[in-house]
């Protein structure tokens, strides 16, 4: 395993030992190595520097179509834990871990709260939700009048904003998502269960002494 670390860390800044990453997450060592295959492919798509830039992330999400997307930007910002404008392998694995089918519901709810708290104020505010609704209309072919948007906002805040102070706090969000569990569907990626079969080439690149399953 020391071998893996020393070789990969030369080419991949911030690279962490797969055994260590496996110990911190729901992934096995083999699954971390399979994720490394995915990481290598994304991080070399524009500049082969061993880090994922926002442009590379969007290219991977939208399959080579250049798209500016509020939500993809938000997700990238949450992957960019060190706030350096790029994502290293350790952060890539730790954030994907929240999307694992075995990750806790609490972690998934917390992640969505941060995702939708666009301004990072600790509250999901009405103007932020309006901004996201307008973004979704721009992205899709859906057409909703301003009155309909305000109606959706009224209905949503009536249900979610329990103390009716015009913003959704973390505990209100927990209650709201518990009543609307479909909102967490985006937070579970079944792909993560099959990652070693999706990227079997990890076996040829493994530098871990023994592949744990």
């Amino acid at each position: 395993m020391g071998c893996f670390h020393s070789t990969a860390s030369r080419q991949y800044p911030g690279h962490e030992d797969p055994v260590f990453l496996a110990s911190q997450t729901a992934f096995s060592v083999s699954e971390v190595e399979a994720l490394f295959e995915l990481f290598k492919s994304i991080s070399s798509s524009v500049i082969d520097d061993g880090l994922i830039s926002k442009e590379e992330f969007q290219l991977a999400l939208f399959k080579n179509k250049k798209k500016e997307n509020l939500f993809a930007n938000r997700i990238f910002d949450l992957f960019d834990v060190k706030r350096k404008g790029v994502v290293d392998f350790g952060d890539f694995v730790r954030v994907l871990n929240v999307f694992h089918p075995n990750a806790s519901q609490e972690d998934k709810i917390d992640f969505t709260f941060k995702l939708y708290d666009l301004d990072g104020t600790g509250y999901i505010e009405r103007h932020e939700v309006r901004q996201m609704l307008i973004a979704i209309l721009c992205e899709s072919e859906l057409k909703l009048s301003d009155e309909m948007i305000e109606g959706i906002l009224d209905k949503t805040f009536k249900e979610a904003d329990v103390d009716q102070d015009g913003k959704i706090c973390r505990s209100e969000w927990h209650q709201f998502v518990s009543k609307n569990p479909q909102l967490l569907k985006i937070m579970t990626l079944q792909y993560l269960r099959d990652i070693t079969t999706t990227f079997p080439s990890f076996v040829f690149h493994s530098e871990v002494d023994e592949i744990a399953t």
């Binding site: 999400l61 939700v129 996201m132 973004a135 899709s140 209905k155 979610a160 985006i186 999706t198």
Partner: peptide
Amino acid sequence: QSPAAMNAFELISTSQGLNLGSLFEK
């Protein structure tokens, strides 16, 4: 379900930008 009958976050969660599954599709 009509979009007007959905809550705001149901609509938002349909964004393609939130579908990380596409990272795994080759």
